[in-house]
């Protein structure tokens, strides 16, 4: 168990993300362990065409995915909002070199959050991405997830953009202890 309270459609939206990643031919999935992404991470580990890459800290993923793009593979970074600030300087790689970047970020600190330490980064996640010109798109309802990820993936993999999809805490369900 990942300790989260499932929202009504919690079984569906991680699967919708997985289907989009498959459709876009994503090969490298770098992640920092996260309850909101737990189902997706399990699916990635079970999929032979994808390489699941656990990281020790989020900014590692920015570098790994730059290397993947250099070598012609598509990748995605899965993380929690608390890790976005860690990425700021490493995003100079994306900005200076024009690397594509797709990040799927589960939000903490914004909806029924029990832990106040999650609030400072959760309330500045979009601004932190904005500092480095990474566009942010939000999905707060299960039915929005697939189309939001698909739209972001198109901008990233066909347009070469850097885009983060913020998956709202209301969607994920507040963590309880």
């Amino acid at each position: 168990m990942d300790g989260s309270v499932p929202a009504p459609a919690a079984l569906a939206w991680p699967d919708a993300i997985f289907a989009e990643l498959q459709r876009w031919g994503v090969r490298q999935v770098a992640y920092v362990p996260d309850g909101g992404h737990a189902r997706l991470i399990r699916a990635v580990h079970a999929e032979p065409s994808m390489r699941a890459i656990p990281l020790t800290t989020e900014e590692e993923g920015i570098a790994v995915l730059a290397g993947a793009a250099l070598g012609g593979q598509r990748g995605v970074l899965l993380m929690q909002s608390s890790g976005v600030g860690n990425c700021v300087n490493m995003l100079s790689l994306v900005k200076s070199c024009g690397f594509p970047l797709l990040a799927l970020v589960t939000m903490r600190g914004e909806w029924g959050e029990f832990n106040p330490w999650q609030v400072p980064m959760g309330s500045t996640t979009e601004a932190a991405f904005g500092l480095m010109d990474v566009g942010a798109r939000r999905a707060d309802r299960p039915e929005e997830v697939a189309e939001t990820v698909a739209a972001a993936a198109r901008m990233v993999f066909e347009g070469g953009s850097a885009v983060a999809v913020l998956l709202g805490q209301r969607l994920i369900g507040a963590k309880v202890f």
Binding site: E59, A63, V64, L65, G67, L70, G75, N89, L93
Partner: peptide, 22 residues
């Protein structure tokens, strides 16, 4: 050659992503 002028701490990890892709 891919030269870094920043992204300190990232060189080996760029190498990882590249090695997996190639």
């Amino acid at each position: 050659n891919f030269y870094l002028w920043g992204a300190m701490g990232g060189a080996a990890l760029i190498g990882l992503g590249l090695a997996l892709a190639q």
